[in-house]
Design a protein around this nucleic acid. Structure first.
Lengths: 209, 209, 209, 209
DNA sequence: GGTTAAACGAGACGGTACGTCCTGTCTTGGC
DNA sequence: GCCAAGACAGGACGTACCGTCTCGTTTAACC
């Protein structure tokens, strides 16, 4: 999740190098401020003051305060997307769900996620970056799992891979954003049951009359 | 969807009455501004100027600009929640879904919905009002439908009513907020298939055991 | 020296009146700051902070910080231009000179004068206002005295009224701006002798050969 | 007019020599920028950019942007002070005046002069350098002329040499700074008449008694 | 001829101030 | 008491420069 991508692997530019210290201080300050007063009270001005940097340094490397938070989140939480491959849709799905849910249960992480999604509604340019650098990556991971399941004939519920993905992320985000409810293993199990009904599960006899 | 609830059905107060003209002008101005420049560029100042009213009048009757937009949305779109009762989960669900989807396809409506959900992430007090006055009402309607289906034994997918509700609204909001995708009849059908898998296809023969 | 002249004696405008308290606080703060750190370190931001007002209030009523200082100077020192009329050029001139010099010897006043003249070199719009509201008024006063002397035949040095005015203000400003030297009665006397050589003075016999 | 005097005639140092190209490019850029946007819009940053040099190079050799302009002025105009010695105060004075006036009539030169005087009001350290390196030199030249006239008994107006100098430079600077008026031969003649009133008119017959 | 050191273009850095916009409150006079 | 108008204190915006500090390169003098 590079901030700009300006460096095209040709660091042979003149001038002083970007300060890694400042970068870290800014991300830490942003994290702290979101945790203390919430994203609504966050301002570039406060980040600069708290981190002991100049506003220009923030504007130089990030396009908006949401981008700072997005990178702070990446630094804070290991957002690396796991790609389980157990050979069973139910198991793969359960793995992805419990991993995602446990991350979303960390208060600071969920606060940041909610803030980023909110900002994306209001700032179209950031929405694009948020989608490309965050949302789509997770969709792709789940999509791969579902594609494999589809190939194995395990996706028997009559919904497309795309829609199944929407169901999974839909419920995750809806519980984050709309009606705060627990994202626990019981919910994960319900979703697994819904999307990957086992041969002896709920719908076993339904489809083979 | 009263704006504040200040008026306690006791209009026997002295002084000038609230101006209905101003109220309407404010809501119209808010609608127009959201349509033109987006919610991000909306400000109380601009609403007052556009509507030819004073800022104080807005602050007097609404708690925040999000509340203005929420009322503007209510004025704009008929948000009355339909409560179908066909006796079949699939049909009831399809009815709710297509109604909701067609509303969400109106650009201004979806813009406002997205804005309100965004604001709710950043302003906890508004989040409470938004939940109570908007989100929960729609959950309750769907909940009633699902409760009836449950009683008839139609909810066979092994998910609770609560979770099924989350699945429905989850996918709706996710497509609004995260990955803009069509909210069409095909999607409605997929969701019906997922949550109300009929033994011999949709609807047919369901009622004659 | 009205700041804007917006009020055209028709105060029948709606809205809150201009706060006289804020106006005074701003002028006092500007005076103090010029006295403490000099005009070079003066900023709108500091004036606002010191005076306990908002920057907008300053920008609303003054076009630049130089205009604030100009009005602060008017408030500080009695800049009312005396118009002596003794019937003698020498006496009139001496009166104007000693009055002007004694004002210019007040450190804060001279600091402000120098700052305003400096700003006028760099900000053409302010230069116009400074000329019209300050410099020209004083020129006019001296011009009147010299016109009267001319009519009485006392201006015998062969310089025009315009040039004589320039000589007087030239030396005043030059000593303020360029080579700090005392502006005392001795200098006044020298200028009187130069421009109004009395009948028994230096040039008495010069012109009647 | 050395820029800093850092080089103490001991060039026996290792390392790269000062680049004459950069020096010239900086002075030219400063001239151009003052001519285009005025001294008020001048900044070290723009000089560096325009001249294709680094800011550090400017800071290394000049103490402030005013010092750059002062040196640019010296490069631009021949500021060498003429020292006429005709044996007649009127003629010497006229020579100095017309020379100075014709220089001050060059727009860019007068703009620079005004800027430097303005900066001197706001930056005491620069004021010192400006006085020593520019103003005082011209005073000294005129002082010499007047001293000689005094010795010859030509200074009959009853003003000291110091004051007479102030009269000359006062009117010059006043017309530059305060009330833009022409600095032409007519004015020079008036000043000559004022300070060197010849018994039978200007210059005529004075030298061949 | 290698070493040392200063000057150079470039540009990031911590800061300060700019002038604008908006917030939520207060004040005024009219309805 | 509501309303339009608008002034107020305050805070943040995004930009421009300040003067300083790396960078890697170039150019001399010295050893």
């Amino acid at each position: 999740m590079a901030s700009t991508g300006k460096t095209l692997d040709q660091p042979a530019r003149p001038g002083r190098k970007r300060s890694e210290d400042s970068r870290r201080a800014i991300l830490v300050a942003a994290s702290e401020l979101v945790g203390e007063d919430g994203y609504g009270a966050l301002s570039i001005e406060k980040i600069a003051q708290r981190s002991g940097t100049g506003k220009q340094t923030i504007y130089r490397w990030w396009a908006s305060k949401a981008d700072v938070v997005m990178e702070a989140l990446a630094m804070k939480a290991d957002l690396h997307v796991r790609l389980p491959d157990t050979g069973s849709l139910a198991d793969d799905l359960r793995d992805v769900l419990t991993t995602s849910f446990s991350l979303a249960r960390v208060p600071l992480v969920s606060d940041m996620l909610r803030s980023l999604m909110a900002e994306a509604q209001v700032d179209p340019a950031f929405a694009e970056r948020f989608r490309a650098e965050f949302l789509q990556r997770r969709r792709n991971a789940l999509g791969l799992i579902l594609d494999r399941a589809m190939a194995r004939g395990e996706l028997t519920t009559g919904v497309s891979v795309h829609t199944a993905t929407d169901v999974v992320f839909g419920i995750l985000w809806y519980r984050l954003l709309a009606i705060p409810s627990p994202l626990d293993d019981a919910l994960a199990e319900e979703i697994v049951r819904l999307l990957a009904p086992g041969p002896t599960g709920r719908g076993s006899g339904r489809r083979e009359p």
